[in-house]
Amino acid sequence: MQDAPLTTGRRRSPLVSRRDALRYATAASALAGLGATAAGAGIPTASAAGPTLIDYAMRQIPAQDIRAAGHSGVINYVSTSRPGSSFGAKPITLPYAQSLTAAGLVIVSNYQYGKPGGTAPSDFTRGFAGGVADARTAWHLHTAAGGGRSAPIFFSVDDDIDRTTWNNVALQWFRGINSVLGVQRTGIYAGVNPCQWAVADGVIGRSSSPGHVWAWQTRSWSRGQIYPAAVLYQRVIDTASNPGPVVGGIRVDVNDVLASDCGQWNLHP
């Protein structure tokens, strides 16, 4: 996700294959729920395939710029900046959230404080107690900004981990999160494998869109695969070598909406 300076160089996997892209386009064309909501509220859709949400951390992007770029909303942070950094969009604030909502844009919550090689370790390495602490912080910031009481928060596994690391490290962190928020309000941001492991181990909740769970899948570490149960897919990832599109003067990541209920606040009061 886009929570690093523009010079960051995280390892990324190749673009999805043409076959998977076509498979996604077919699925996305059925996003009647969010599409209808967008049409009814005057929210632009980014493409014929379906709505898109952007994520970013450098600073708050004015709502009118997001609308003008053709996006339906945002995935914003309910976490603070790491030591030594000062991201203007972390955490989302009540006035900013109100400006987005007033413009007819939807909001989804994400938590990420640490990162690999950063000034704070990856959040998923912090164990059960760390999960408890992170969930409490996320929920406080989410609700302070006006986030829905039944809305999920997506917690980040921003690294290429194997099953052993999942079982022995990340899973314990998610269990801690669950102990505070409950499974139904817990989501995951990760590559394709951790998204599936989170479902198998019962640590993330389910969307009201049939067949979908609170999985925000990144293209990174997914080897061209798209998890059919995911609600969001991070298709465009801003890096120094592959810049993302510019919205409101900064580069952003772009996420395809795969389900009409992707955890947006307005559906989860």
Rank of each mutant, 00 (worst) to 15 (best):
I54W: 01
D55L: 07
Y56N: 08
M58A: 13
I61L: 11
I61R: 13
P62H: 05
P62Q: 03
I66C: 11
I66P: 14
R67V: 15
A68H: 12
A69D: 15
G70C: 00
H71R: 13
H71F: 15
G73D: 03
V74A: 15
N76G: 14
N76K: 14
T80E: 15
S81C: 06
P83F: 00
P83G: 07
G84Y: 01
A89Y: 00
P95D: 00
P95F: 00
Y96S: 09
Y96C: 02
A97W: 06
S99K: 01
T101M: 01
A103C: 03
A103Y: 00
G104S: 02
V106I: 02
V106P: 01
Y113S: 06
G114A: 06
K115I: 10
P116Q: 14
T119F: 00
F124D: 07
G130I: 09
V132P: 07
A133M: 09
A135I: 04
T137Y: 12
A144K: 00
A145T: 06
A145S: 14
G146S: 08
G147K: 02
G147L: 06
G147H: 04
G148R: 07
G148C: 03
S150V: 10
F155W: 10
D160W: 05
I161V: 04
D162F: 12
R163C: 08
T165W: 03
T165L: 02
N167F: 07
R175K: 15
R175A: 14
G176K: 02
T186H: 08
